[in-house]
Design a protein around this nucleic acid. Structure first.
Lengths: 137, 137
DNA sequence: ATAAATTCTATAATATTAGTAGGGTATTGA
DNA sequence: TCAATACCCTACTAATATTATAGAATTTAT
């Protein structure tokens, strides 16, 4: 399941994607428009900024805006940024790989292969869903 | 990601599936064979019993054994039993559906459709992985 | 200068997870 | 019958993660 953070991040990105080109959105606008607690959203937007999905302008008249095309932001990326691995165990993960305790002794746990198949299918599906595809429902 | 409980449940089921027909396994055997804390495993086996994957015999010479074919126990079922919904949000779930707070006001949140597509693909993949398929790696 | 906005760090409240403890109940076999 | 063995059940605890909130520092437009 998605964390609140990941869900809020998606809602915030959807909000930004729906604005006119070159429009800058203040945090408070996004918070009210997408029903997100403002102070919590601040942290989320900073995370999105550090990961280069959005950029910001400080000070009066400042705010946030997309710097990555809404067609190129996938659900897989947002999931990984806020919730980590897509695979069901670390030993089956591409981006967050680590051997599980049992893998060490048995070299490979029995679960790994099956979980990698599931990861591949889930990842493919998640890469197919973009902010743009969500905006036009 | 899978909880420890779900992972241990899978390991325990794998252990049982590897035993000879009609063999009864004591909790302590499974715990040592699959590297699972014994008292924690007790709870997990009881959950598996209540969900009719295994049955048990009490008293001396007692233990646990599979009552569902290893070909018919899927990863999807174990995930749902221990970790709940497969979908990324409750509003996109088949077995654990509930409207999210935003769905109420907007009737449907923008995320729902995309998340249902992901759920469908993940579910298909998870139903394809059985205890039997994991035993023969 | 002042107001408005982002940025940053710390902290609090809550929920979940992972595991432990300890006794109760059923069955076997001497 | 009685003791040993093994499942059954509930409660509790410790650690961790999640979901925020608070408050001050910094930047920018006017």
């Amino acid at each position: 399941m998605l964390s609140q953070k990941a869900k809020y991040a998606l809602k915030a990105l959807l909000y930004l994607a729906e604005q006119e080109e070159n429009h800058i959105s203040r945090t408070i606008e996004i918070a009210e428009g997408a029903h997100i607690p403002k102070k919590f959203l601040e942290q989320i937007l900073l995370d999105l900024k550090r990961a280069r999905f959005v950029s910001s302008k400080q000070g009066k008249m400042g705010g946030y805006y997309l710097i990555k095309s809404k067609h190129d932001i996938t659900l897989a990326e947002i999931h990984r940024l806020f919730d980590g691995a897509i695979a069901l165990l670390p030993c089956a993960s591409l981006n967050f790989y680590e051997p599980c305790s049992d893998c060490k002794t048995e070299n490979e746990c029995n679960l790994r292969h099956g979980l990698m198949m599931i990861r591949d299918e889930t990842l493919k599906a998640m890469q197919n869903i973009t902010i743009a595809s969500l905006v036009d429902k």
